[in-house]
Amino acid sequence: MNFRKFFKSFSYASKGVIHAIKSEQNFRVHLLAGVVVLLAALATGLSKLEWIIIVILICGMFVIELVNASIERVVDIASPDFHELARQAKDLAAGACLVYAICTVIVGLIIFIPKWWGILY
């Protein structure tokens, strides 16, 4: 195993995440939402399992956004002119982000509403 190549791969991956933060509006929106959710979680007092679920959901959203951005870039290279299948590929990748985002909101509400209900009433 070449440790130099192994550690260099972390540098490449970090560049990808930094590029996404700088260039992808939706990634920044999800980053902000993740921070807000983490602050709400700190204020709410979640169980260990609830924390695990929240962290997996937040990180999963980042992963989906990075994959979506990658698909968009590859499609743009492969099909610089308009092509219906290229549009569909990009729409499908964006659709995956939307489905996952809706899922995270639903799970978040299932976790947070009972706790907030107990605090408010």
Rank of each mutant, 00 (worst) to 15 (best):
M1R: 07
F3S: 11
K5V: 05
F7I: 06
F7P: 00
F10Q: 15
F10V: 00
G16W: 03
I18Q: 11
H19W: 02
H19N: 10
K22F: 04
K22E: 15
S23R: 05
E24D: 14
Q25A: 03
R28K: 03
L31D: 09
L31T: 01
L32P: 00
V35T: 14
V36M: 13
V37I: 10
A40G: 07
A43W: 10
T44A: 15
G45E: 14
L46F: 11
L46S: 06
L46D: 09
L46W: 08
L46I: 11
L46H: 02
L49K: 11
E50R: 08
I53W: 04
I54Q: 12
V55W: 13
L57S: 05
N68C: 08
N68I: 01
A69S: 13
S70E: 02
E72P: 00
E72S: 06
V75N: 07
D76R: 12
I77L: 02
A78F: 01
P80E: 03
D81H: 02
H83W: 10
E84P: 00
A86E: 10
R87Y: 13
A94P: 12
A94Y: 09
G95W: 12
L98F: 07
A101V: 03
A101T: 06
I102D: 07
T104F: 03
V105W: 04
V105R: 12
V105L: 13
L109R: 02
I111T: 09
F112S: 03
I113M: 05
G118A: 04
L120R: 13
L120G: 10
